[in-house]
């Protein structure tokens, strides 16, 4: 018994150890990696992933961290790219004013969230399958909107998110930092957040204590879709427009970042700040591997393997808890 507990404890530290070793290795191999310039660059590249990871964190916190039966939302990147496509199409192709384009985009993203909430809470579909299905559908609609073509965006606000600075820091990084703070406050400091956590911790117990778990879960999908909407602006800023296919990388990085964040949190739970930190670490890895000339396909392979290590370690260490 003690031996099992010991092994479990050891497994908990595997992701942290793997990452620590990787960063030590990258730091030695690529001396420019930890200069202020590169760190700023990595933070900038992390922004869209940070924002969508906040959304995923909310869904997992509220729905529970069991990958199959708990909360998960794979459609946030899709919500982000449909919103980005709508903004780009409206602003560039139709000359719509940005605020109106943003309103359309918000409506589309919230519709995705509402659809997920309906499928999961009312129809009782597994979140994994429901959000995968809505993601595929939303990407399809996005392709119809853009006709699979790239749309450039030169709107001053979007350009500001890309190039602007606020108190000496990149505007996008500051905005993502603020959003992290807001989502952290909501989920970890308010009564609403506590009850959402209670819902995720054990739905039956929460039900008994009078929490309307269905409502919490539904709202978590809406909050996630809202991060998709917010991320769309950063996706546009990062790419100076909407390019087809952006969702794939974003999805991979979001899942990795959020579960990685859990591996780094003291109780091995998905948290808002953990997800944001995870996203930054993932960006650091991407830039780090490129800096030492690792082939792009190996980078994809390494990221996939890391997801496995992190999720498997989480599964192995939580199994005995329930």
């Amino acid at each position: 018994m003690i031996a099992i507990q010991f092994v479990r404890k050891l497994l908990e530290w595997v992701p942290v150890a793997v990452f620590a070793l990787m960063f030590i290795f990258l730091g030695i191999e690529a001396p420019t990696l930890f200069t202020p310039f590169t760190i700023d660059l990595m933070l900038k590249q992390a922004v869209p992933t940070v924002v969508v990871s906040l959304g995923l964190a909310v869904v997992i916190i509220t729905g529970g961290d069991d990958v199959v039966s708990g909360g998960i939302d794979l459609s946030i990147p899709a919500a982000a790219i449909i919103a980005a496509a709508i903004i780009a199409d409206q602003v560039t192709n139709h000359g719509t004013a940005l605020p109106i384009a943003l309103a359309f985009a918000l409506l589309a993203a919230i519709t995705v969230g509402a659809l997920n909430a309906f499928l999961v809470v009312m129809i009782r579909m597994t979140p994994l399958l429901a959000t995968l299905a809505s993601s595929v559908a939303v990407v399809g609609i996005t392709k119809m909107i853009t006709q699979s073509k790239r749309i450039n965006v030169t709107d001053p606000f979007i350009v500001f998110l890309r190039d602007g600075t606020v108190i000496g820091l990149s505007a996008g990084v500051v905005a993502a930092g603020l959003l992290t703070l807001i989502y952290w406050f909501l989920m970890h400091q308010t009564r609403w957040g506590m009850q959402a956590q209670a819902t995720g911790g054990g739905r039956e117990a929460a039900d008994i204590s009078g929490i309307s778990t269905k409502r919490y879960q539904a709202i978590s999908f809406l909050l996630a879709a809202f991060t998709g909407f917010l991320a769309s602006m950063f996706v546009l800023a990062r790419g100076s427009g909407s390019s087809p296919g952006t969702e794939e990388n974003l999805l991979l990085e979001m899942v990795l970042a959020t579960f990685l964040g859990a591996a780094f949190s003291p109780r091995r739970k998905v948290t808002v700040w953990g997800a944001a930190l995870g996203a930054v670490l993932v960006a650091m890895l991407s830039v780090g591997f490129k800096s030492i000339g690792v082939n792009v396909f190996w980078t994809g392979c390494i990221k996939g393997a890391l997801i496995l290590i992190v999720v498997a370690s989480a599964a192995a260490t939580t199994r005995g808890r329930y």
Binding site: T32, T35, F37, T38, L41, K44, Q45, R150, R238, G239, S240, S243, G245, T246, E248, N249, S286, V287, K290, S291, V296
Partner: peptide, 14 residues
């Protein structure tokens, strides 16, 4: 991936 390609120029700059 055009986005990854664009981001890669940052790495060269760094």
């Amino acid at each position: 991936d055009n986005q990854v390609h664009a981001d890669n120029h940052d790495v060269l700059l760094a």
